[in-house]
Write a protein that binds this DNA or RNA. Structure first.
Lengths: 142, 142
DNA sequence: CATAGTAGTATCCTGTTGTATACTGCAATT
DNA sequence: AATTGCAGTATACAACAGGATACTACTATG
């Protein structure tokens, strides 16, 4: 149960650092958006198709914010009509560890949930820890 | 500019995995809350004091959600009056990589912003990439 | 000629998140 | 005897994120 961070001071400092990080990456879309750009530049509608359920308004806003934080660069080509691409910057590479950790957790957590649901007849800890309704809590689970 | 994930398929799958992960960890408080519990069990008011600005209503809700996802366990001691502690579960360890990555990024990003603000007289890329108002964008920066 | 695609913007609306304030009932402290 | 701390709940409200739908002006395709 012991972790690397265990003094009161490093712990408080970590809370601040995490808060800073989340301030920049918050919301439902920023990280998925960055991931969807990892295999090269994409155009607006292309992204919208890939990130099922994102509306143009929200996508537009998220892209603007990522641009301001220098994770994404917007390139306009003066074709007729204009075409616009979005691509990741060099700086965005500093997010790779976060993305990889989230990805690994997401994958493992989904498997855990599926396993849980299969053996859901066993309720030994039901009183202390209510059996979560995982099926409703993860959206896709195809 | 090449990363590990670069085929269309692995990229789409990663988006799903990230979405799953964020589904469980979303919001402003869950990760900071978990971090604040890394140096041992804490009581309700103790947490509230440590996480400046969280209201009891929100804290209560966040703790309930973390409990349902089995990251936190709530222990009630029948002292008079009852005392309650919250502590991290074994399973919560699977979040350590995420937390460490976010922490490292948060720390480095804050330093980058401070550096940017010092040399803010240089505006060579102002037209393409508006100089972000970092001072307003990070909340603490004491 | 109608449809589809381009890169978004404009409005309106809902739902969650967060804030503010007050309150509980009991015990220990001042 | 009054205040403080405990672990929250209750109520009302404000703010913001996000969703639904429609629309622009232009071009290419069927």
């Amino acid at each position: 149960m012991e972790r690397k961070l265990h003094t009161k001071e490093t712990c408080k400092q970590s809370v601040t650092e995490i808060t800073d990080a989340l301030y920049v990456l918050n919301g439902k879309w920023k990280l998925p958006l960055i991931v969807s750009l990892t295999n090269g530049p994409k155009r607006f509608n292309e992204i919208q198709r890939e990130l099922k359920n994102i509306t143009p308004k929200v996508l537009s806003k998220e892209l603007r914010e990522l641009e301001q934080n220098e994770f994404v660069i917007r390139k306009v080509f003066d074709t007729v009509p204009v075409s616009v691409t979005y691509e990741l910057t060099e700086y965005s590479k500093c997010l790779d560890d976060i993305i990889e950790a989230l990805r690994a957790f997401g994958q493992q957590h989904r498997e855990r949930i599926i396993g849980k649901n299969k053996s859901s007849s066993v309720h030994e800890h039901a009183a202390e820890l209510p059996e979560p309704e995982y099926a409703d809590e993860l959206e896709v689970l195809k």
